[in-house]
Design a protein around this nucleic acid. Structure first.
Length: 878
RNA sequence: GCGGACGUGGCGGAAUGGUAGACGCAAGGGACUUAAAAUCCCUUGGGAGUAAUCCCGUCCGGGUUCGAGUCCCGGCGUCCGCACCA
């Protein structure tokens, strides 16, 4: 075949990519109209924090989203695919402290730089909807939402123990403490008692938990993590009467929460949190107890200390009466391991069936009585010493419960205690407890959304009137002193009370940045509306997000907050649904080998040259040839210097190569190993596609579809439509690595077909090659959009492939007229048999039994059984 | 401790209970070239055999099934999440 074309031999990605990006922008093909009548599809990737430069994780995330967006557009949807900036946060303030740059300047410079980088990736984003959360135009509405939540009873100000990050000098939510350390600073978190603003997420514990079952397009793993985080447990709230002789006057009863009321006859002691009111009351009369409580508080300053602290208790001398036996008195201890903010802050201890209670009882000589006997165990010989038993069994030593199963016993105890009253209240009631705590949103930092509240001596807490929104951050702040710059500002916090005009103080805490990201996806639906956070009609049109893509690290934090926020905004009328993300996909990380010089220093991949001699693979310093040790494959990080800069890759190979490699090989939810060889492979394929399409463009094909097709043409057409069917299905299921494989297969097939056609191909084959080439280009367009445009133009099309619709599958071509069935003998493959597709069962059997291999195996006997699975396989059992 | 996921060639990985290893990478051999790059062709799970072909093979041990990488039971290993939650 001749290829004397004027077309460039090699595809110049740099030149072509900027050219096509410009054309897309000029024609505005990615801007989405809110009144587009096509079925809506909202695809969203988690918006980035503007740290300064994008990293490979962003490239992977945004490539996946872009594939979905372009595919959905091609299949006839109105696609909403916006981008913005999670722009408030500590790093901007750290930059201000370290480099004397204003957080605003730093942030907006970073946004500009990163936007340019994202644009160089060729993402089909609607930039007209761009949002920065640090923009007063955005946070004005967030303040309005805060005030709405306040009115709706979803905001609370309360004093509580909070997680204090001593490095960032701010409070952190429970979700933001990872292994006892601040999620951003890594500093050991301390416990402090402060007055804070809280969102009452715990009001929604039950719905947040229950609705997880409806999120069938979320990863099981994420749903499970949220379920565990919400931590529902069902149990019984039991009121123990106190022994009047041993307790202070006025204290009559002690409430505890238990999930094991069945073990009530195994009780040996009661334990109170050091913060429990009864403990506090007793301490006022008992200096030794007061000293003990003080001791507990000292230990509990850092999370690490709590983890390692020994379980200690103090016998208060008080006694509680067993609910089923007023003569049975249980000693009441104060113990350091009882949490005040779970349940009632008090427990009854059953040492035989709870390891922690057993450790405590053994330490203080309280003994134990087993009340659940494991199946097959003789109750007389069942003894607990150091290991408690928490398994199933039959009740023993438990009076009227004896012989019952655990569940039966729980029910019996509940029934009896519910119907019994002491004073005016029942002895017990069924209760559900959650581990989930309210979301503390106060941050003692500057670069965040101001909380629109004024503190007045006379009027107390006064919301900022809506006409005064936004409460904007002052620009003239100083970062010289530690602490909150807003607090140090000479005038900003001094205001007059909106209610009584007296001098008052502005709230100087700002909101947790996770508030900013809890509703941005709703704002994207109409980012222009000025007088309200949302236009509910438009929000309800686009929401929920059909496909959300981001990292697994947000499995709890951002995703749980957003689910809460959507419910709360629903309550306030800003949106009409509870769940923000119908589909969620969590992508894996980008990892890379690490390299270490002989002096122990980490070396950047860009400075390393890999040399392979046969099987061996070794690394040297590119500049000197000095040998370098190849270390383990790890998440790209600055500390190990194993990062690759997307800019460098795009400059060297183009965005399409980077995008293609990101989607190849690894399943998208697993980690992908970035290798130079892999990028080279992707780059070679880009060039190969360009040559292949060039060759196809040179084929003289008839304009009209031929009447009939020869076998070579049919083979080409079948390959194209098979690939089309596979790629369509695989994009739908986000299996990009398989899409890549099918595109390779089609390219291989077309390459082979071209080289097999020795002379100029027959008209039917030429037409089929053109058809297949056009399908191929549209198939790889979502992954490599610039190359696809270039190829589409080379094939003679005047329009943009980005606006072209997805090819239509000709189903007839997927059906073979003959089938080749593998023939097994006793489950092992021994032969193939090719038959007409519609061959009858009896015909298949006859053909199989006539095979030499089968005859040989049968040795003249008849088979025990012949299993024919239509279209699949035949198994002969001898 | 509790909960979950995973374990397939030299590597990344394919495989509705139905031909294990698609596709890519790496490697080896060859063609083209003065040479290199680029490109193209061939080989590539292990073993036996000139060959046809046969045997073994999806972490280990059992089981269900005509048939198991896939389902069930029991181990081992790796990774992740939660962790004084009563």
């Amino acid at each position: 075949m001749t290829a004397e074309s004027s077309r460039a031999e090699r595809y110049n990605a740099r030149e072509a990519e900027t050219r096509w990006q410009k054309i897309w922008a000029e024609r505005g093909i990615f801007s989405t109209k809110n009144d587009d009548p096509h079925p809506k599809y909202y695809v969203l990737e988690m918006f980035p924090y503007p740290s300064g430069r994008i990293h490979m994780g962003h490239v992977r995330n945004y490539t996946m989203g872009d594939v979905v967006a372009r595919y959905k557009r091609a299949t006839g949807n109105a696609v909403l695919h916006p981008m913005g900036w999670d722009a408030f946060g500590m790093p901007a303030e750290n930059a201000a402290i370290d480099r004397k740059v204003h957080p605003k300047t730093w942030t907006y410079d970073n946004i500009a730089a990163m936007k340019k980088q994202l644009q160089s990736m060729g993402l089909s984003l609607d930039w007209a909807r761009e949002i920065a959360t640090c923009d007063p135009v955005y946070y004005k509405h967030q303040q309005k939402i805060f005030l709405d939540f306040l009115k709706a009873g979803l905001v609370e100000r309360k004093k509580s123990k909070v997680n204090w990050d001593p490095v960032d000098q701010t409070v952190l939510a429970n979700e933001q403490v990872i292994e006892g350390r601040g999620w951003r600073s890594g500093a050991e978190v301390e416990q402090r008692e402060l007055t804070q603003w809280f969102f009452k997420i715990s009001d929604y514990s039950e719905t947040l938990l229950e609705a997880l079952d409806t999120l069938d397009r979320w990863p099981e793993k994420v749903r499970l993590m949220q379920k565990n985080w919400i931590g529902r447990s069902e149990g019984l709230l039991i009121r123990f009467m106190l022994d009047a002789a041993t307790t202070p006057a006025g204290e009559k009863k002690l409430e505890i929460f238990t999930t094991r009321p069945d073990t009530l006859f195994g009780a040996k002691f009661m334990a109170l949190s050091p913060d429990h009111p009864l403990a506090q009351a007793a301490a006022r009369k008992n200096p030794k107890l007061a000293a003990f409580i003080n001791e507990c508080k000292k230990i509990g300053t850092s999370q690490a200390a709590i983890d390692t602290a020994e379980k200690i208790g103090f016998d208060t001398g008080m006694k509680a009466l067993h609910p089923f036996d007023p003569n049975w008195k249980l000693p009441i201890y104060v113990a350091n391991f009882i949490l005040m903010d779970y349940g009632t802050g008090a427990i009854f201890g059953c040492p035989a069936h709870d390891q922690r209670d057993l450790d405590f009882a053994n330490k203080y000589g309280l003994g134990n009585t087993p009340v659940v006997c494991p199946p097959g165990q003789d109750p007389k010989s069942f003894v607990i010493t150091d290991v408690s038993y928490d398994g199933d069994g039959r009740m023993i030593n438990s009076r009227f419960l004896d012989g019952m199963g655990i569940e039966e016993a729980k029910e019996e105890v509940a029934k009896r205690l519910e119907s019994e009253t002491r004073g005016n209240s029942p002895v017990a009631q069924r209760q559900v407890n959650y581990r989930l705590r309210d979301w503390g949103i106060s941050r003692q930092r500057y670069w965040g959304c101001p909380i629109p509240i004024i503190h007045c001596e006379k009027c107390g807490i006064v919301p900022v009137p809506e006409k005064d929104l936004p409460v904007t951050l002052p620009d003239d702040v100083s970062f010289d002193k530690p602490g909150n710059p807003l607090d140090h500002h000479p005038t900003w916090k001094k205001v007059s009370c909106p209610a009584c005009s007296a001098p008052a103080r502005r709230e100087t805490d700002t909101m947790d940045t996770f508030v900013d990201s809890s509703w941005y996806f709703i704002r994207f639906t109409d980012p222009w509306i000025e007088n309200a956070p949302t236009n509910p009609r438009i929000a309800n049109h686009w929401m929920p997000v059909d496909q959300y893509i981001g990292g697994i690290e947000h499995a709890i934090l951002h995703l749980l907050y957003s689910r809460f926020f959507t419910r709360a905004m629903h309550k306030c009328g800003w949106v009409g649904m509870d769940e923000p993300f119908a589909g969620l996909f969590t992508q894996g990380m980008v990892v890379h080998e690490t390299y270490r010089a002989p002096n122990g220093e980490w070396v950047e991949p860009a400075k390393v040259r890999i040399e392979s001699a046969g099987e061996e693979r070794r690394a040297v310093l590119a500049s000197t040839g000095e040998p370098i040790e190849i270390g383990s494959v790890e998440k790209m990080s600055k500390s190990k210097k194993n990062t690759v800069d997307p800019d460098d890759i795009i400059a060297a190979y183009g965005a399409d190569t980077a995008r293609w490699f990101m989607l190849s090989d690894s399943p998208p939810d697993r980690d992908v190993i970035w290798t130079e060889e892999g990028v080279q492979g992707a780059w070679r394929f880009v060039q190969r596609l360009w040559r292949l399409i060039g060759q196809i463009a040179d084929v003289a094909a008839p304009a009209a579809r031929p009447e009939s097709f020869g076998s070579a043409a049919v083979a080409v057409r079948k390959a194209a439509h098979r690939a089309l069917a596979h790629v369509s299905e695989d994009i739908d299921k986000l299996r990009f690595n398989r899409c890549v494989a099918h595109i390779y297969e089609l390219a291989n097939t077309l390459g082979d077909a071209l080289s097999e056609a020795e002379t100029e191909p027959t008209p039917d084959l030429a037409w089929s090659l053109r058809e297949a080439g056009g399908i191929l280009v549209r198939l790889f367009h979502p992954m490599m959009p610039h190359l696809a445009e270039e190829c589409w133009a080379a094939l003679g099309h005047q329009n943009l492939v980005a606006s072209e619709s997805w090819p239509t599958i000709e189903r007839d071509l997927l059906i073979e007229s003959t089938m080749t069935l593998p023939v097994q003998i006793n489950g092992k493959k021994r032969a193939d048999v090719t038959l007409a597709r519609d061959a009858k069962q009896s015909e298949i059997e006859a053909a199989v039994l006539a095979l030499d291999a089968v005859k040989k195996a049968l040795e003249g006997k008849s088979p025990k059984k012949v299993i024919v699975v239509p279209q699949r396989i035949v198994n002969v059992v001898v």
